[in-house]
Nucleic acid binder design. Structure first.
Lengths: 213, 213
DNA sequence: CGGCTTTTTGAACGGACTCAAGACGTGTGG
DNA sequence: CCACACGTCTTGAGTCCGTTCAAAAAGCCG
């Protein structure tokens, strides 16, 4: 279900000469290990990745001190590194393909619109939802992104700590913690470790996320 | 300073044949009146506007009821109409130029990144700032967008009602109102009507916006 | 001047925060 | 295998900021 860190063919990275191969071949995948910081790019000219496996988190250093977590990128998403005050970090070992601005213009355009829409939904979440609703929404988002099967009560490995989830959702780590125990108490989710979460009642989660209680 | 509604050459709209004119000519400007709803576009294929004068507000119908205000577009900004659940409305009579996806690909790409960054800053605002900080930040944003001169204590005509400002900032209209009177009380701004605002102390506003008291 | 919408102001309430202690898990070395 | 230490997470009690609900005031336009 969810992609774990270590598996056979890592270190495929480096740019293999693929100029003379037949067109439409599978692009060469690169690999980056956990903790790697993705260097920020020249304004509007940064590299663009399509993530195949793993997880990248995007955050931003704020004016006076704290770090704001902005988004979590999972398999399938296209990551465009924004400019200066942002920084990106690999959280789950990451296999990805580099997209060229010229060649994949349309896909990049569409995924930028998608990311913008995602950010807008996140704004709506911050403006209109309570703490419980936010956590429920986040759990579903991560579960979908990281392939935990909605039906089969798939297990989800959270790529974030409690305070990081809090930063993302506009809450404190303590509040996130309280809500986890609350959700566990009412059998909506269960947890074997702090990071490993089972979604037991998907339907209940959606109801909570929408504020229907 | 700020562009008012009625002035000479309105109704320039409609597409004038400009095929045979010399290249790099000024694109024909279209005009839309206050209250016009911009029809939502086909997925990823909507029209793209560069705003020369006026104001467009972007909002979204939420799942159960309320409307979420997402952004306010002023002169100079490039507006890409997102898909289905979003809607856009002209708030100050608007003169704009239509950009073609093919021809202006680079500019559109850059402005998408800019809008995404803007949305990220807004998320940071919602996560980390208090009500006063939010209102101060918003006032500076609108002042800059609509050309109120920072030095000359320029007047700013708010294109939004109190509840709308509240929706944008994740607050209630009442709270916004309270903070306006508070800012007026401490001489940071002044107001001749509910919509017309003078920024009296720009430096103080920036301090408030950053949370330096 | 009347009727309307928008804004202001007030008092009580509540949800998330703060600060602090305690429990849990995880890795290390004996 | 156990003891210890460290970081993360949990839990509690009190506080604060923004909300809620309601009424009064101020604009706006006929």
């Amino acid at each position: 279900m969810n992609r774990t860190l270590s598996q056979g063919e890592r270190e495929v990275s480096g740019i293999q000469g693929n100029k003379t191969t037949r067109r439409k071949m599978a692009a060469p995948l690169q690999t980056l290990g956990v903790g790697t910081k993705l260097a920020d790019a020249a304004p509007f000219g940064g590299p663009i990745y399509r993530i195949h496996e793993g997880c990248i988190i995007l955050s931003r250093r704020m004016h006076h001190g704290p770090v704001q977590l902005l988004d979590v990128y999972g398999p399938g998403r296209i990551f465009v590194h924004p400019g200066a005050p942002n920084s990106a970090e690999v959280r789950i070992e990451c296999r990805f393909e580099v997209l060229l601005a010229r060649k994949h213009a349309r896909i990049i355009h569409e995924s930028l619109l998608e990311n913008l829409d995602r950010s807008h939904r996140h704004v709506a979440l911050l403006c209109g939802k309570t703490a419980v609703q936010r956590v429920a929404t986040m759990l579903m988002d991560l579960a979908l992104q990281f392939g935990a099967d909605p039906v089969a009560q798939g297990k989800l490995l959270l790529p974030l700590t409690r305070p990081e989830i809090g930063s993302w959702l506009g809450l404190r780590g303590e509040t996130v913690s309280r809500i986890f125990t609350q959700l566990i108490g009412q059998q909506t989710i269960s947890a074997d470790t702090h990071r490993g979460v089972h979604i037991r009642d998907w339907r209940a989660l959606t109801l909570i996320a929408d504020g229907s209680d």
